[in-house]
Amino acid sequence: MTLPSATLLAQSALSGIFIGSLYGLLGLGLSLSWGLLHVINLAHFAFAFLAAYLCYQLASVGGVDPLLTLVLIVPLFAALGIAVQWLLARFSLSPLNSLLATFGLTAIVEAGIQGYWTADFRKLESVYAGEKLRIGGLFVPIPELITLALAVALSFGIYAAMRHTRLGRALRALAEDAPIAAAFGINAQAHALAIAGVSGALAGIAGVCLALSFTLTPSSIYAWVGVVFAAVMLGGLGSALGPLFAGAAIGVSEAVTMAVASPSWAPIVSFTLLIALLLLRPGRT
């Protein structure tokens, strides 16, 4: 095995950070709903893909700037998130049952996407896709840079809001002991809907990022589940910054593994990390 050059390693690490920031962005909404609502929302991935296809449709067919589609997608997916939570809340499901219920929802959304857009590859040819910055010896693709910027801004923004706002405090109190929080006047149901709305909006934003950088097929929804779950669990449930950092760590390990070993080794990295973590920190879920 020959060692790759420093430039190749640096380029790999950079692309790892980029893909890791998308893991983090996808994981952020998942982590909030899991940690704060105790809902393991598998449909988060399906919604992200639905948003990605919607962005593709509006941009490719409608000629809209892909980033401008956020104006429609963010409120639409916030509403979708709220609607799903409203339905789930009517059945007061355990986390495991919420996983099963949202798995069903994922299959429905996947079938819907396949029905409308077919199973063919779809790739958004946006104005951003051709652009590349060159910094030092490294290539920096613009779509990935946009994803990174959004992931960082949203993760840190939500982190700050959770710590420093009245709403954030109320959400943390509810996550720790909902009945006692309610006894002090915090409306658990309303806050759950708010979290679900934020989480849905995040799925929409992650979907736009997906459309900017990736070729879409309906079945590739599932390709993201394992690695994003790993990022969420590594980062800590309910944590706003955790998924971003854990996602970046996984992304970089994957990319460097690909560069020094072979691409087929990459998926093993995140799961090895996840299993190691679960073994080293028993009792944590």
Binding site: R169, R172, E176, D177, I180, A183, G185, N187, A188
Partner: peptide, 27 residues
């Protein structure tokens, strides 16, 4: 609903304290 009881001026010190353990005392 549960969250409106406190409007009537009722406040609870629950058995076993049930503080929000991960939040600061001020919070």
């Amino acid at each position: 609903p549960a969250h409106r009881f406190c409007e009537s001026g009722i406040a609870l010190v629950p058995e076993g304290r049930r503080l929000f353990a991960r939040m600061s005392v001020r919070e």
